[in-house]
Design a protein around this nucleic acid. Structure first.
Lengths: 231, 231
DNA sequence: TAGCCGCATTACAACTATATGACAGCACGC
DNA sequence: GCGTGCTGTCATATAGTTGTAATGCGGCTA
């Protein structure tokens, strides 16, 4: 496999160079962008495997908007994003997770920490498409054969339920609001009601219940849903 | 932290003993397995922090399959794996890293080299954890999964209690008046009675009490409340 | 020691969020 | 064209959460 390509979106040249050096030493390929429009181009032409995104960017478009937009586009929806935030900005972290960043690193950060998170994230997401088979808590989803097994029994799911479960199983132990789920499972141009998510969750649970796997989909009241093996 | 537990998967008793001795001298805990089925059991019951995996194992299941399977299971996906390759087989190394091994050691290897790699890997994987996780006094709050753990037990909280605890845990060792708490937890423009804070503090304490963590929320008479590890 | 004040505790009724079941519109294959 | 299965919406049921108020308790002060 070729070494992963990482897109660095950061306006300060000094920080960018530092990151670039770190990446090179760890044998990653990289491209960089200094603002959001440029980042869009790189995204389209270079097709990176992961994005390092500075929270504070010049121009009217913040990193937040960029991240949100990425989540809406089919092509970039599953791209792992690591947010670079200033220390002490608890709000930023929360909002960052809201728009779907997968992880964040607070500045200033050590090269080692950055690499560790990149590696962890790449491994997780690489497993997601490459392996095509993922198992959690007795549930097995095989993307290739488009099949779901609970234990060794087949589970019949409709298309939307399958996509929903697929998203959940690839992003476990994390809450997603109904809006986020609509963005990431249904896709961009949807005028669909929040409550519809409830219904599909319900259908998914119903299908999983005979196998005892419905417990994996957990309601987080006031927030959304979570897929997790733990209670 | 307790000393890390290492699972040694190796069929040759002589090599296994040598490794075990090395580990013991470095003050690591260890368990061992001679084949893949046994390794699975140890993985499930002992929950090791790192796996030393021999590439050449008896039986139809190779180390490669085992490693791949580990990457599929949620519980073991992020477990660091060091591969022990028999010969200087470049192919094996490549394939090993492909399935997600984090490092490899070529036999014969020196105890010192083995220990160095174990140490480095444990350090890295330890750092890769938790971005949005804060722990104080046995309490762990994970914003990402929107979960609270006391020790390793789940604590059920309502939305407001969660927000309150989240604020406290991010601002420890400092008194806050009821008005301040209303501002920062409930939001600015609320016309809510001071006494309501008492009730929510009470509810939070009640939820934490079974785990002994209620002592962290302290009343400062005439002033307000404080969250602190010290009494 | 009586009385006051601040906090703890409990109960409760309004309110809100989620679960559930039913339904009509579609798309698709036959 | 006709079933069949899937989707999104709605109405209703259920369950969990919230702020308030009543009451109890203990310490502090006069």
């Amino acid at each position: 496999m070729a070494s992963p390509l990482i897109l660095v979106v950061e306006d300060e040249p000094a920080v960018r160079d530092m990151i670039a050096l770190t990446l090179e030493q760890a044998d990653y390929e990289w491209v960089s962008a200094g603002d959001v429009p440029e980042a869009r181009c790189r995204l389209a032409d270079a097709r990176p495997d992961l994005v390092l995104l500075d929270w504070m960017l010049p121009g009217q478009h913040s990193g937040l908007d960029f991240a949100r937009q990425m989540r809406r586009e089919e092509l970039t929806r599953d791209l792992p994003v690591i947010l670079l935030t200033a220390r002490d900005a608890e709000d930023d972290k929360v909002r960052g997770l809201d728009v779907g960043a997968d992880d964040y690193v607070t500045k200033p950060f050590s090269p080692r920490e950055l690499l560790a998170r990149i590696k962890a994230l790449l491994r997780r997401s690489g497993q997601a498409d490459g392996g095509a088979v993922v198992s959690i808590g007795g549930l097995t989803l095989d993307a290739t054969s488009h099949r779901v097994l609970a234990g060794d029994e087949n589970v019949a799911l409709g298309p939307t339920e399958f996509k929903l479960l697929s998203f959940f199983i690839h992003h476990p132990d994390r809450v997603y609001s109904r809006d986020q789920l609509l963005d990431r499972v249904w896709g961009s141009n949807v005028y669909i009601d929040d409550r519809t998510v409830d219904v599909h969750v319900r259908r998914l649970r119903k299908a999983l219940a005979p196998h005892g796997c419905d417990r994996l989909i957990q309601t987080v009241r006031g927030v959304g849903y979570r897929f997790s093996e733990q209670s």
